[in-house]
């Protein structure tokens, strides 16, 4: 038992992203409101972004972009520098996520115009009639 708790505490960042991911996943699958589904999708994406960001972090590592000269004073030593690449990648991923959200919101607007509601059950009822 001790060891499991220890394990969780030691890697708490990963556990947070797993929990967030599950929350997002639940919202996407379980919620019947389309906006909530979309929010769930955003949470899901965010959890993965957090996961990537946390992979780059090192305990006591310097951030090479904020204070470049100090961080690289002792030459390029991978152990003391936070890996910037995942962070840069996530900038792109955020852009992608925002675009998807934008498209999804536009689509939701069209759905609302068409059916006058964003509840999936009500929409399905209307389409079947």
């Amino acid at each position: 038992m001790e060891s499991i708790i220890g394990e969780i505490v030691a890697k708490y960042n990963y556990w947070i992203y797993v929990v967030l991911m599950m929350i997002g996943f639940y919202a996407m699958i379980g919620k019947r409101n389309l906006v909530k589904k979309l929010l769930g999708m955003n949470i899901f994406q965010t959890s993965i972004i957090l996961f990537f960001v946390s992979t780059g972090v090192k305990k006591g590592g310097a951030i090479p972009i904020v204070d470049k000269y100090q961080a690289l004073a002792g030459g390029v030593d991978a152990a003391t520098i936070v890996n910037p690449l995942p962070h840069v990648l996530m900038l792109t991923a955020i852009v992608v996520g925002v675009s998807v959200t934008g498209v999804a919101l536009a689509v939701l607007q069209r759905i609302y115009k068409e059916y006058g509601t964003l509840e999936e059950d009500e929409i399905l009822e209307k389409t079947q009639r």
Partner: peptide
Amino acid sequence: RAALSSFNYIIMGSIGACFYLL
């Protein structure tokens, strides 16, 4: 119903993309 189908595709497609990214 195209908009609704498209929305469902967005949700599923994003899950797929996120899994890939993971």
